[in-house]
């Protein structure tokens, strides 16, 4: 999964766009391929996207607003914001620390560490939820101790936050590591030699250099944190108005055949996805610009 997420930032896009397209294949082949690609993408991506909003607005604007302002829906939106609001900053700090250690230093076992950081990507969300049931459930490792001290983790907000942190664990680190490896250590070394402290170097030199990559990782991390379903579903307990996040609220409403309300909340999540894609495209464009500006000179504006 990392390969996919890394791609836009790491590959130096050296392609010079040619005005003339490929001259080898006949025109009919070209048009057929374009048609096949567009029909496939329309069926699998565009139609579903349109369908979310159509279904949500089927009964009119008033019903739509009413579904979103429902107290259970509001509490689901709040819980989703809380979970993402905790998970994203935690994984942001981790991502910066991991990228600093891995990109700026050489040490034994680095590739093992990289693989371990990727691990949550390859674990099924259901299993991510299951591990917290095994730890904090009634029969779990800490179950009895938690009961004695009357602390609720499972089927409560802390469990939802933990599952979200696990699922979104690698996002920021995976964006920053290749970026910081590419940038090397020269600028930091220069700052330190000139007498800056370690933290000054980080805030004044490193952070400005990685800000776009950091933002890129954060928006992907946030999209996943707000949209996570499987892992959260296992640990939540589905208590209405208390432990339901937006995706879980969508499921409950859908299973109650309240399709319009389910799609109304789903449409908010689809909007979040669209905003994420828009910011992502913008950052890729910015990085492309700054890279073309960088070539030839290592000069950077402060």
């Amino acid at each position: 999964m990392s390969a996919v997420l890394d791609k836009p930032l790491v590959t130096p896009q050296t392609t010079t766009r040619r005005v003339k397209t490929n001259a080898f294949e006949p025109n009919w082949v070209r048009y057929t391929l374009i048609a096949v690609a567009l029909i496939f993408l329309t069926l699998f991506l565009f139609v579903p996207l349109v369908a979310v909003f159509t279904e949500a607005l089927k009964r009119g604007w008033d019903t739509y607003v009413e579904s979103i302002l429902d107290p259970d829906a509001i509490s689901a939106i709040k819980l989703t914001l809380i979970a993402a609001g905790i998970a994203v900053p935690l994984n942001l700090v981790f991502g910066v620390a991991a990228a600093w250690a891995i990109a700026k230093f050489d040490f034994k076992g680095k590739s093992v560490l990289l693989t371990l950081i990727d691990l949550p990507f390859s674990v099924s969300p259901v299993i991510a939820g299951l591990i917290y049931v095994l730890l904090f459930g009634a029969q779990g490792w800490f179950g009895e101790w938690l009961m004695e001290h009357d602390i609720k983790i499972l089927f409560a907000v802390p469990g939802i936050v933990l599952a979200t942190v696990f699922i979104t664990f690698p996002f920021v680190a995976r964006e920053l590591i290749p970026l910081m490896q590419q940038q090397g250590t020269e600028e930091e070394e220069a700052a330190l030699v000139l007498g800056a402290s370690g933290w000054q170097t980080f805030w004044r030199v490193t952070l400005p250099n990685i800000k776009w990559g950091l933002l890129y990782g954060v928006i992907l991390c946030n999209a996943r944190a707000m949209g996570e379903f499987g892992a959260v579903s296992v640990v939540s307990g589905h208590i209405r108005g208390e432990t339901n996040t937006m995706p879980l609220q969508v499921e409950i409403l859908y299973n109650e055949y309240n399709f319009t309300a389910a799609f109304a909340i789903a449409s908010l999540l689809a909007l979040l996805a669209l905003v994420t894609l828009a910011i992502k495209t913008f950052i890729e464009w910015r990085l492309h610009q700054s890279r073309s500006a960088d070539t030839g000179t290592t000069e950077r504006t402060q």
Binding site: V4, L41, L45, F46, P48, L49, A51, V52, E55, L220, A223, M226, G227, E228, F229, G230, M246, P247, L248, V250, E251, Y254, F259, A262, F263, A266, L269, A270, L272, A273, L274, T276, L277, A278, K280, T281
Partner: peptide, 17 residues
């Protein structure tokens, strides 16, 4: 840009749609 939609769209939304 649309190709990344399945990454960004929550799975439950994809499921019901």
């Amino acid at each position: 840009a649309l190709v990344d939609l399945p990454f960004a769209l929550p799975t439950a939304v994809a499921g019901i749609t």
